[in-house]
Design a protein around this nucleic acid. Structure first.
Length: 355
DNA sequence: AACCCGTGGGC
DNA sequence: TGCCCAAGGGT
């Protein structure tokens, strides 16, 4: 087993490292809070999508103490649109735990025990913020490793093997001297040269020791077992606005999909499409409901079609409002809604302003 | 172990 | 358009 030379990767990194909002320049001391925050946001989420959210968060919550002291709903609101909302709830719980501890644990095991921090994030924060010589294994590192060692076993079954192989990548002295840079160099290598589709092996600092390249297999790795088909579900949501321009919203349950997030009132999301009469029986108020449109939204494990019904009323009855809360439509249009509800809101709003 | 949990961009 | 992918974690 040949360990690729860390000095070659680090030399490449010193010339080509990305400038990112959460990344220190050379010589700067990393802020563990910012490292941790960025790592949580970057879970299954692109650098481009995270950028504006990260900047807004550090402005609104400059320290882990500030985040811990903030109301949970403020944190959820700041997260709205970024997806995987359990991250936001765990982020807040983690901030409170860290504030109680007086600071972030400096070891992998200590970090791993905190909410929302798994094996990857614990290693990433330990390496980047505290200089612990560990290799965080994310999708990038799995891909780089699968290619370096020509691992043919498909993911996700090969995950343990890849983690084991990756853990040896920092075995030599140059890597152990710069744990933070070495981890980030692996990310940059994976996101640029060693990319999923068309790796630029001709420019790679590790080409000489890459078994996948030697076998002409690099671009095909890592292999993956085919995913199950994505089922379809159907739901109906209702947008109703009063003469003063208020829209009726409600809060979703504390657990499950889009937990604790805001939504338009609606039906369950089920396999069978809803007949109109059946759906209208669940409308939040009596009104002249009109079919405003259909919204399609793709979640990780199912595709959702939502029929949006819209209506105007003069004013809401107290019993209507008791189901949720009212918000001026001008705020709702730009408010802290999950993306699917943002789409529904737009569909209803556009319809009411056309009709 | 297998499933649940979002979203937007690239090709 | 449809599919793949992204600095994964919890249960």
């Amino acid at each position: 087993m040949i360990t690729p030379p860390a000095h070659a990767l680090l030399h490449w990194y010193d010339r080509h490292r990305r400038t990112l909002p959460w990344r220190c320049t050379e010589g700067e001391t990393p802020d563990p809070y910012r490292v941790w925050l960025s790592e949580i946001m970057l879970q299954q989420t692109t650098v481009k999508a995270v950028g504006p959210y990260y900047l807004r968060f550090v402005e609104k919550f400059p320290t882990v103490q500030a985040l811990a002291a903030a109301p949970r709903d403020d944190v959820l609101a700041a997260w709205a649109g970024l997806g995987y909302y359990s991250r936001a709830r765990n982020l807040h719980a983690c901030a409170q735990a860290v504030a109680a501890l007086g600071g972030f644990p400096r070891t992998v095991e200590g970090l791993r025990a905190l909410p929302g921090i798994g094996a990857y994030t614990a290693a990433a924060v330990a390496a980047i913020a505290f200089g612990v010589p560990v290799v965080p294994v994310d999708g990038n590192v799995e891909r780089v490793t699968a290619r370096l060692y020509n691992v043919q076993d498909p993911l996700p079954a090969a995950r343990k093997t890849l983690a084991q192989l990756a853990s040896g990548l920092n075995a030599d002295a140059p890597a152990r001297a710069r744990p933070s840079d070495f981890a980030q160099a692996l990310f940059d290598l994976g996101s640029s040269l060693c990319s999923p589709r068309q790796p630029a092996c001709g420019l790679c600092p590790w080409q000489g020791t890459c078994a996948g390249y030697a076998q002409g297999m690099a671009a095909t790795l890592p292999r993956k077992t085919p995913k199950a088909e994505r089922p379809v579900r159907h739901g109906v949501h209702f947008m109703v606005m009063d003469a003063a321009g208020h829209v009726l919203l409600r809060k979703r349950p504390e657990t499950g999909l889009l937990a604790a997030m805001t939504e338009l009132p609606g039906t369950a999301w089920r396999t069978e499409p809803w007949a109109e009469a059946e759906a209208l029986a669940q409308a939040p108020t009596t009104a002249q409901w009109a079919r405003a449109g259909v919204v399609k939204h793709v979640f990780t494990h199912f595709t959702l079609y939502v029929v949006v019904y819209a209506a105007r009323v003069e004013r809401f009855a107290n019993t209507d409002v008791a189901q949720g809360f009212l918000l001026p439509v001008t705020q709702a249009k730009t408010a802290s809604l999950p993306s699917i509800m943002q789409k529904c809101m737009t569909a209803g709003y556009d319809f009411l302003h056309r009709a």
